[in-house]
Design a protein around this nucleic acid. Structure first.
Lengths: 363, 363
DNA sequence: CTGAAAGCGCTTACAG
DNA sequence: CTGAAAGCGCTTACAG
């Protein structure tokens, strides 16, 4: 017994440590070991047809003995399905703001949602993050496209034209953007969320002056939020502080910059500052606090997204919750049905929820 | 002009929206469009040989016009390289502890390090997270193995035997474990870190009673830390509180449980509690605070890892910093050299650094 | 420099 | 139920 063990071991370690690495096993090795054809091996491995019990057993045994794992590339080439979904997003390597790099952010949570949904279908997720300073983003995305059955693109990864072009190669789902021709889009109901938020500030709290710290101006989400913000505030007769000094960029640093600019050139602050997203609110709150301005007593602040850290800010952030896990999962599901059935919803809008905490002035 | 635009559009949208989806483009389409052989197309696409300028141009133009993207599976099958590295890790879906799910944890940071290093080599990262309750983990991992050129396995994903077996299929790097036969391992210098930490507590602070809240007992990291902890504390003549009640599980909940068990059955607490990792320390500190026990005045607490949130705890956590980004990057680099050159370091040990903050009793 | 052809490791009609 | 064979879309010796 001892001996058998040793033999098995030295055999193995022999194979493993050979300088000339053993050629990878193929389905042919399994077939000859089991004494059947490669077609039979393939069938029992994939549960196709109804192989005779004896056949099945011999194949299974050979697979187990050899430790055979079929090559994914060959399978993919043969049956036209890689069982891989590509996800491309922007790595936040630009900003170095307090809690910003350190929390699970919007994109991370979405990716987790994609992952979970993908696993249900036997898909794996091919991640490709691109840095802000990376060049040839397009070729990087194309490389991912070539390795996947479909692509999920986070917001603002590519121009509408590029997206349309790419969607000729593989099905594409964009996140939180607007539908591009050829691609599908999954997003949250910005309009309803912003409407509820502004009404809460202007009607419930009765704030008469209000401003919107914008996100990147090329973001459809930002544009939708800005539009509704203005319409609702105007409808309620509030005064809107506006202008280029209110331009943020979705980052905490951007939000802080806006506030710093305001207090430097002394002028009246609005009673409430509505931020394009939570990260911006984070920066705004930090900067306000640094300048000794009380939140929410002097200025109320709100966010958008409800990232995990939002409830831990001081004061806890009033914001609009986007169902991020669900957003990711839905993106995958839409993509999957497009891949498998050939048709998918061109646009899905998920409901959001106003989360009232204390940064708006509520007790 | 207007007309041209429209024509181009309707043409395209025609192709895109056809019920019978257009057959995917192949290298043959490009070749015929460019009037060259597929070999030439392949050569210019891959920068092999020295195609004549005219050839190159015609190919490039055809590629651009058609929007051709080569199929990754076919490339992989043909040249034996997928340019994909698989990463398998455990999703934390078990515990619901305060800051635990909400911060970028150990594994997330490591994965980011892998991603960055992989991009440098044109590799993409195939992520597969497994939940604690997931079954047939092995088959899931094998599926990833089949789709990748190599595998990076986080700690405690598989038994040593399974790892050795798997390493017969693709090169495997394990993280923070001990080297299994056939696989390579990248880890941090637990011994040096724990030695410095315990000496700081026992020698510098002069604490005479001390305990170690263990991590999972099947973790090599935990065993190494426990061993050095005991040796150093004993060498300095400190009294070690020990026993099954000090068994944690690497989670915040586990750390809290240990403390709760201690205060329930009143007994003397040690002067210092050394935790197997930061998450455990997080739970220990929460539980201590909940019971009105002062940190570090009554009990000092330390962690291990230096996760991003560690510096934001109250008091800031004294811990041992593992270079997590570097750990991930090194894991990829080792794997890559094994994939490309055929040989890689069987074991790499990265240096760690004692980070003294306030939870140990320092001002 | 370029093309015809073989081959990568699978899956799946097609016969039997 | 099972096997021989074609084919998936590339890359790369091998001739020319």
């Amino acid at each position: 017994m001892e001996l058998t063990g040793h033999m098995a071991q030295s055999q193995k370690s022999n194979r493993t440590s050979k300088t000339a690495p053993k050629a990878a096993l193929t389905i042919y090795d399994v077939a000859s070991q089991a004494g059947v054809s490669i077609a039979s091996v393939s069938r029992v491995l994939n549960g196709q047809g109804s192989p005779r019990a004896g056949t099945r057993e011999r194949v299974m045994q050979a697979v187990a003995e050899l430790g055979f794992v079929p090559d994914g590339a060959a399978r993919a080439l043969s049956n036209g399905l890689k069982e891989v979904v590509g996800v491309v997003f922007r790595r936040g390597d630009e900003t170095r703001f307090q809690d910003e790099d350190e929390s699970l952010l919007f994109m991370d949570v979405i990716n987790r949602g994609i992952d979970v949904a993908a696993q249900r279908r036997g898909f794996d997720v091919l991640i490709s993050s691109v840095g802000f300073s990376d060049e040839n983003v397009t070729s990087r995305i194309e490389a991912v496209a070539g390795k996947a059955d479909g692509l999920i693109l986070h917001d603002r990864m590519l121009s509408a034209g590029s997206i349309t072009r790419l969607s000729g190669v593989v099905p594409v789902v964009t996140l939180a953007g607007s539908p591009s021709r050829g691609a599908m889009n999954v997003r949250c109901d910005n309009e309803a969320g912003m409407r509820a938020l502004v009404r809460h500030l202007v009607v419930d709290h009765g704030y008469r002056t209000i401003a919107y710290v914008a996100g990147r101006s090329d973001s459809p989400d930002n544009r939708a939020r800005a539009r509704v913000f203005e319409a609702e505030a105007r409808a309620a007769g509030a005064e809107i502080y506006t202008g280029p000094e209110w331009q943020g960029d979705y980052s905490a640093a951007g939000g802080a910059r806006v506030v710093t600019g305001l207090v430097d050139t002394p002028r009246r602050l609005p009673r409430a500052i509505v931020c394009a997203n939570d990260q911006t609110a984070l920066g705004v709150m930090h900067a306000l606090a640094r300048n000794g301005i009380k939140i929410p007593d002097t200025v109320a602040v709100t966010g958008f997204d409800d990232v995990p850290v939002a409830r831990h800010l001081h004061p806890p952030l009033t914001t609009v919750r986007q169902p991020m896990l669900e957003l990711g999962a839905t993106a995958f599901d839409v993509l999957y049905s497009r891949i498998s059935v050939g048709k998918g919803e061109p646009e899905v809008v998920l409901p959001v929820q106003l989360i009232v905490r204390q940064s708006c002035g509520c007790p």
